[in-house]
């Protein structure tokens, strides 16, 4: 951002973002998701944690709590306080980002919290706090949505009672077309970005933002496409959670068998 710095790593704008065959810069079709991988329980200290890779995005989320809240006057008498911090490490992007929270990160922390709150039974834990930390280790477009995907798995891993998981993906407009799961270059040079989060099983949208210009019909198209991607991510989330318990079961059985 600062003009006095000379960047040494540059990503040039490709001449076309979608080619004649409808392929995108990374070879995907407009309704194609990037490869996604979710791991559960990656941090031993946290009550719950998850690691998500979506394309080149690498994001880790951890949950601590419910625990006592300090200072006490911030406690809510009828429910837990969800504290959320979305943060990008300085080397996660081409040009070093200051480690201090930017205005963007403050806003994203807020909308991520608000995207997850509807899924949580916070009323089960009055006067307590649940801390959620999302660290972006490498950013490649759609970090807030991948962060939500990771965070919701981490919350489930922590055993926080939930109405549904929250799965999220960004859709957007690239060369006049509505596409699923924008990568960094499409986010930067495309015409618009629309992050969406949902509780898939309940059909409820919990995060909706957009920049760029859309006709009302395009918004409908974008939301339908987002839903399609979210359903796929939802399956990967559930698989990841199940895998952890299958693994746990196997370990227990092995131990038991030995004895």
């Amino acid at each position: 951002m600062n003009s006095s710095r000379i960047p040494i790593r540059k990503e040039e704008r490709p001449p076309r973002l979608i080619d004649d065959e409808g392929r995108r810069v990374d070879g995907r079709l407009p309704d194609e998701l990037r490869p996604i991988k979710i791991e559960v329980g990656v941090l031993k200290n946290a009550n719950g944690s998850a690691y998500v890779e979506l394309g080149r995005n690498k994001i880790i989320a951890a949950v601590y709590g419910p625990k006592e809240l300090h200072p006490k006057h911030l406690a809510l008498p009828d429910r837990a306080v969800l504290y959320c911090r979305y943060h990008m490490v300085p080397f996660s992007v081409m040009e070093r980002k200051s480690p201090a929270p930017s205005r963007r990160e403050i806003e994203l922390s807020k909308v991520i919290r608000e995207a997850l709150e509807p899924a949580l039974f916070l009323e089960y834990f009055p006067r307590t706090e649940i801390d959620l930390f999302i660290e972006v280790l490498q950013a490649d477009g759609g970090t807030r949505t991948a962060g939500i995907t990771a965070a919701s798995v981490a919350l489930a891993d922590a055993g926080i009672p939930m109405r549904d998981l929250v799965a999220a993906v960004a859709v957007g407009k690239v060369e006049g077309r509505i596409v699923l799961d924008l990568c960094d270059i499409e986010d930067k040079y495309g015409e618009g970005d629309m992050p969406v989060a949902m509780m898939p099983n309940l059909g409820q949208i919990t995060l909706l933002q957009a920049d760029g210009v859309y006709s009302p019909e395009e918004i409908k198209e974008a939301l339908k496409l987002a839903m399609k991607g979210i359903m796929k991510i939802y399956e990967v989330q559930k698989e990841a959670l199940k895998r952890k318990y299958i693994e746990l079961k196997r370990e227990v059985e092995e131990d038991y068998g030995k004895k």
């Binding site: 608000e114 059909g203 919990t206 909706l208 920049d211």
Partner: peptide, 22 residues
């Protein structure tokens, strides 16, 4: 045309509700 969207505070919306809001 819609040129910015922001959902705020907690809570959730159905697709139908978003269309009605537009």
């Amino acid at each position: 045309e819609i040129c910015a969207i922001q959902k705020g505070i907690g809570g959730s919306l159905t697709l139908e509700e978003v269309y009605r809001a537009i």
